[in-house]
Design a protein around this nucleic acid. Structure first.
Lengths: 200, 200
DNA sequence: GCGTTACCCTAATAACATTAGAAAAATATC
DNA sequence: GATATTTTTCTAATGTTATTAGGGTAACGC
C-alpha cells in the first residue's frame, strides 16, 4: 500500500518535472537526465515508469484532456440556446488553457506535430471534445437561431480554426498578454456567419 | 565560376534531400547521416554548407516563402473587390500548399513549433504574407462591401485561423484528400461574417 | 530467517551530432 | 606544364544523449 502511494508519487513527480521542462525548453532540448534530476531520480529509474522520452511526451497530457471532457458536460449543462452554448464553450476552453499553460503548450506545440499523435489517447479525446460542437450547431439550426442550411461541419472548421489560432498565437508569444483580449469582439464577428438571416 | 555552380548544386542537393526526409520521417527521426547519404556526401561535408541539423531545418523553406510573397502581388493584381481578393487569396494559397507539400509540412509541423522560429526569415516573411489581408479588409470596409465597423485584425484572425486549420488537418491526415473539398461552402459561410448588413 | 517484490542505482552500450585534421580535387599563378 | 593555393570532401575522432544490463537495498509476507 505504501508501495503504491510512493510509486504514484514518483510517477507524478516525473510527469510534473517533464511537463515543466518540456514547456520551458522544448521537447528536443530537454534531456532525460534533466527530467530525472528534477524528479530526484537516476535516469534508469525513470525507465521503470515510462518506456522512454517519447512515451513521456505522449502520456503527459492524458489526465488533463480526460478531465476536460468531464468538465465540459458540466459546464454546458443547463445553458439554453446554441449561441450561448458556443460562447460558453469558447470562454470555458480558453480559461482551461489559461489555467494549464504547460499542458496546453505540450499539446499544441509538441504533441500535435508528433507522428504518433493520431494513435494517442489525447487525440481521440480531443475528437470527442470537438464533436460536441456539431451538436451545438445542429441545435442552432433546428431551433432557428442559426441558418437553416448551416452545415455543422463547416461551421466547426471556422470555430475551431479561429479558436486554435488564438491559442497557438498566445502560446508562441509566450503568454505575454491576456487570452481574453478582444475575445468578445472576435466572437461576435465570427458568429455572425452562423446567424439566421445572414445570406449565404 | 564552375566552383559556384557546383557548390550551389551541392547545397541544393542537401536541401532537397533534407526536405524529403524531414517531410517523410519527421525532423527528429531523420539523421544527418540519412541526409548526407541521400545527397551523396559524407556527414562532415554537409557541415561546410550548414551549421547543423537545426540550421538546415530553419533554412529549407526560405526560398519557397520568399517566392510566395512575390507571387502574391502578381496574383492579386487587377482583381476588383475585397471579397474577390479574399477568395483569390485563399484559393491561391491552398494551391501553393498543394504544389509544395514538403515545404508546407516542414513549415506547419516542424518549424512553427521550433523555439527559434520567431527569429527566422520565414517568420518575418509569413508576417508580410498575412499583413496584406489587413489591406483587403480595410478596402472592403472602405468600399462598403463589408461592415462599416469591421475590425480588420479580428477578421484576419478568423480568416487565417480557418485557413491554417484546413491546411494543418490536411497535412496531418497525410494529404489523403483534396485540399479543395468543401472549400467553396466553407468560404461562403465564413465571409458572411464580414458582409455588410449582417448585424454585429 | 528467507524468499519475493518493488524500487532504485552504477556502469555499460549504442546512436547520433558535431569537430579535427588530412587527402584529393579544382583552380590560379608562374 | 609544373607548382602553389584554395575549395571540397573524406576518414576518424569526440562528446552528448537515449536506452539497457545487471545488480543492490529495503519493505513485506510467511
Amino acid at each position: 500500500m505504501t508501495n503504491k502511494v510512493i510509486k504514484g508519487n514518483t510517477r507524478d513527480r516525473i510527469i510534473e518535472s517533464a511537463k515543466k521542462l518540456f514547456a520551458e525548453q522544448g521537447y528536443q532540448k530537454t534531456t532525460v537526465i534533466d527530467i530525472s534530476k528534477q524528479a530526484g531520480l537516476s535516469e534508469a529509474a525513470l525507465y521503470e515508469y515510462f518506456q522512454g522520452k517519447e512515451d513521456l511526451l505522449l502520456t503527459i497530457p492524458d489526465l488533463w484532456v480526460s478531465e476536460l471532457i468531464e468538465d465540459l458536460k458540466e459546464q454546458l449543462f443547463g445553458i439554453k440556446g446554441a449561441f450561448n452554448k458556443l460562447r460558453k464553450y469558447l470562454w470555458w476552453y480558453l480559461r482551461r488553457i489559461e489555467e494549464a499553460p504547460l499542458d496546453a503548450k505540450i499539446v499544441y506545440l509538441f504533441l500535435k506535430t508528433n507522428a504518433n499523435f493520431m494513435e494517442t489517447e489525447v487525440y481521440s479525446n480531443v475528437k470527442i471534445l470537438y464533436s460536441s460542437l456539431i451538436d451545438i450547431f445542429e441545435e442552432g439550426r433546428a431551433s432557428g437561431e442559426m441558418k437553416p442550411d448551416l452545415n455543422p461541419y463547416f461551421a466547426r472548421t471556422i470555430f475551431i480554426g479561429t479558436m486554435e489560432h488564438i491559442v497557438t498565437r498566445w502560446l508562441v508569444k509566450d503568454m505575454s498578454y491576456s487570452l481574453f483580449d478582444n475575445l468578445e469582439d472576435t466572437f461576435d464577428l465570427m458568429v455572425d456567419a452562423f446567424k439566421k438571416g445572414n445570406s449565404t
